[in-house]
Amino acid sequence: GKELVLALYDYQEKSPREVTMKKGDILTLLNSTNKDWWKVEVNDRQGFVPAAYVKKLDP
């Protein structure tokens, strides 16, 4: 199944490769191989958020 992450903080995108999220958002995790930036999908948009700003949810 899909892996989900919880947004721990608000994040405002600073480049087109990033996405904005609000604290409490549930996002689909697409790629977590980079320790600093994780690729997520939110509202049909894909992009990166700081890994420290999200937490993996237990399945």
Results as ranks from 00 to 15, higher is better:
residue 12 Q to T: 08
residue 42 V to S: 11
residue 35 K to G: 13
residue 33 T to D: 10
residue 1 G to K: 09
residue 8 L to I: 15
residue 13 E to Q: 14
residue 25 D to E: 12
residue 21 M to I: 12
residue 56 K to C: 11
residue 43 N to L: 08
residue 29 L to G: 02
residue 37 W to Q: 10
residue 27 L to E: 00
residue 24 G to Q: 02
residue 38 W to N: 02
residue 44 D to Q: 15
residue 1 G to T: 09
residue 4 L to T: 14
residue 59 P to C: 08
residue 9 Y to V: 15
residue 7 A to K: 00
residue 39 K to S: 09
residue 29 L to D: 01
residue 18 E to D: 06
residue 19 V to D: 00
residue 33 T to M: 08
residue 35 K to R: 09
residue 2 K to I: 10
residue 4 L to W: 04
residue 36 D to K: 11
residue 55 K to C: 05
residue 31 N to I: 05
residue 7 A to Y: 00
residue 37 W to M: 10
residue 17 R to A: 09
residue 25 D to S: 08
residue 30 L to I: 15
residue 4 L to N: 08
residue 22 K to E: 14
residue 47 G to K: 03
residue 28 T to V: 12
residue 2 K to R: 07
residue 40 V to Y: 01
residue 7 A to E: 00
residue 46 Q to R: 11
residue 38 W to E: 02
residue 45 R to G: 06
residue 58 D to C: 05
residue 18 E to S: 05
residue 9 Y to D: 15
residue 46 Q to H: 08
residue 14 K to I: 06
residue 4 L to V: 10
residue 31 N to Q: 15
residue 43 N to K: 10
residue 3 E to K: 08
residue 18 E to L: 03
residue 28 T to M: 09
residue 55 K to G: 08
residue 53 Y to Q: 06
residue 1 G to E: 15
residue 39 K to A: 13
residue 1 G to W: 05
residue 25 D to F: 03
residue 40 V to E: 01
residue 58 D to T: 12
residue 10 D to E: 05
residue 58 D to Q: 09
residue 51 A to L: 00
residue 25 D to H: 06
residue 14 K to S: 14
residue 54 V to Q: 01
residue 56 K to P: 12
residue 25 D to Q: 14
residue 11 Y to C: 01
residue 7 A to Q: 00
residue 16 P to L: 09
residue 29 L to V: 13
residue 21 M to Q: 02
residue 45 R to C: 12
residue 4 L to M: 14
residue 14 K to D: 12
residue 23 K to E: 15
residue 7 A to M: 01
residue 55 K to W: 03
residue 27 L to P: 03
residue 50 P to D: 00
residue 10 D to M: 00
residue 20 T to V: 03
residue 51 A to P: 08
residue 37 W to D: 02
residue 38 W to L: 06
residue 28 T to W: 11
residue 57 L to F: 10
residue 43 N to R: 14
residue 9 Y to Q: 15
residue 59 P to K: 09
residue 43 N to P: 07
residue 48 F to R: 06
residue 19 V to L: 13
residue 35 K to Y: 09
residue 28 T to Y: 06
residue 5 V to T: 03
residue 39 K to W: 07
residue 54 V to I: 08
residue 45 R to Q: 11
residue 43 N to T: 10
residue 28 T to L: 09
residue 33 T to Q: 08
residue 35 K to L: 07
residue 54 V to W: 00
residue 53 Y to D: 03
residue 55 K to L: 04
residue 16 P to F: 07
residue 37 W to I: 08
residue 29 L to P: 01
residue 28 T to K: 11
residue 6 L to A: 13
residue 52 A to I: 05
residue 8 L to M: 09
residue 15 S to T: 12
residue 24 G to C: 03
residue 7 A to C: 08
residue 36 D to L: 09
residue 42 V to D: 05
residue 7 A to F: 00
residue 8 L to P: 01
residue 51 A to F: 01
residue 59 P to Y: 05
residue 32 S to V: 07
residue 3 E to N: 11
residue 49 V to C: 02
residue 21 M to R: 00
residue 58 D to S: 13
residue 38 W to C: 09
residue 30 L to G: 02
residue 42 V to W: 07
residue 4 L to K: 13
residue 35 K to M: 09
residue 8 L to N: 05
residue 29 L to N: 02
residue 13 E to I: 04
residue 52 A to G: 15
residue 16 P to Y: 06
residue 41 E to C: 11
residue 35 K to N: 13
residue 52 A to L: 09
residue 58 D to W: 07
residue 25 D to R: 03
residue 7 A to P: 00
residue 2 K to D: 05
residue 27 L to D: 01
residue 2 K to E: 13
residue 19 V to S: 02
residue 40 V to S: 01
residue 55 K to M: 06
residue 26 I to T: 14
residue 14 K to E: 09
residue 20 T to P: 12
residue 35 K to F: 07
residue 38 W to R: 02
residue 17 R to K: 15
residue 27 L to W: 02
residue 8 L to D: 05
residue 24 G to R: 02
residue 13 E to K: 15
residue 26 I to M: 10
residue 44 D to P: 02
residue 22 K to G: 06
residue 2 K to A: 11
residue 39 K to C: 13
residue 30 L to C: 13
residue 43 N to E: 15
residue 58 D to N: 10
residue 10 D to F: 01
residue 35 K to I: 07
residue 39 K to R: 13
residue 24 G to N: 06
residue 11 Y to F: 12
residue 57 L to T: 10
residue 12 Q to H: 08
residue 34 N to A: 13
residue 38 W to V: 12
residue 40 V to I: 07
residue 33 T to K: 12
residue 42 V to Y: 09
residue 17 R to P: 07
residue 49 V to L: 02
residue 30 L to R: 07
residue 37 W to A: 04
residue 47 G to T: 02
residue 50 P to F: 00
residue 38 W to T: 03
residue 22 K to R: 15
residue 12 Q to E: 15
residue 13 E to T: 09
residue 45 R to W: 03
residue 38 W to Q: 03
residue 53 Y to G: 12
residue 57 L to M: 12
residue 35 K to P: 15
residue 20 T to E: 04
residue 30 L to D: 02
residue 37 W to E: 10
residue 39 K to M: 12
residue 43 N to H: 15
residue 47 G to V: 04
residue 46 Q to G: 08
residue 36 D to M: 14
residue 7 A to H: 00
residue 1 G to I: 15
residue 5 V to W: 05
residue 39 K to N: 08
residue 3 E to H: 09
residue 21 M to A: 03
residue 43 N to A: 15
residue 18 E to V: 03
residue 25 D to W: 09
residue 3 E to R: 09
residue 54 V to K: 00
residue 53 Y to A: 15
